[in-house]
Amino acid sequence: MPSIDVVINLTREECLAHYEGWARNVRARSLDGRRVIFPATALRHIVGRNGVDGVYRLTYSESGKFESIVALREN
């Protein structure tokens, strides 16, 4: 299963906009500099009281469909 490591830094308010459906996708930058877009629904599993801040591993299918997100390092 392919994966990519990304840095995500979103405030609580930004996460709320994603959660409420105002934003459908999240844009992040991978550790190797690529731009990555994934569904905002993925944040529901990792958002905390202060938002999302850290390095996360995204896994996706061979066809490029998002499958999961796991924290590697949270700040």
Rank of each mutant, 00 (worst) to 15 (best):
S3T: 14
I4W: 05
V7K: 09
N9H: 05
N9V: 05
L10R: 03
T11E: 09
R12N: 03
E13L: 09
C15E: 05
E20S: 07
E20K: 12
W22A: 13
A23F: 08
R24K: 15
R24L: 11
R24F: 06
N25K: 14
V26N: 00
R27T: 13
R27C: 03
S30I: 10
L31P: 03
L31D: 13
L31V: 15
D32F: 07
D32V: 10
D32Q: 13
R34W: 10
P39S: 13
L43Q: 05
L43K: 05
R44Y: 05
R44E: 06
H45P: 01
I46M: 06
V47H: 00
V47I: 10
R49C: 05
R49N: 13
N50Y: 08
N50Q: 13
G51T: 04
G51Y: 04
G54T: 03
G54A: 07
V55T: 15
Y56N: 00
Y56H: 03
R57P: 05
L58R: 03
T59I: 11
T59D: 12
E62N: 07
E62F: 04
E62I: 12
S63V: 01
F66P: 02
F66D: 01
F66I: 00
I69Q: 06
V70Y: 08
A71V: 14
A71T: 15
L72E: 15
L72C: 13
R73L: 14
N75L: 09
N75P: 12
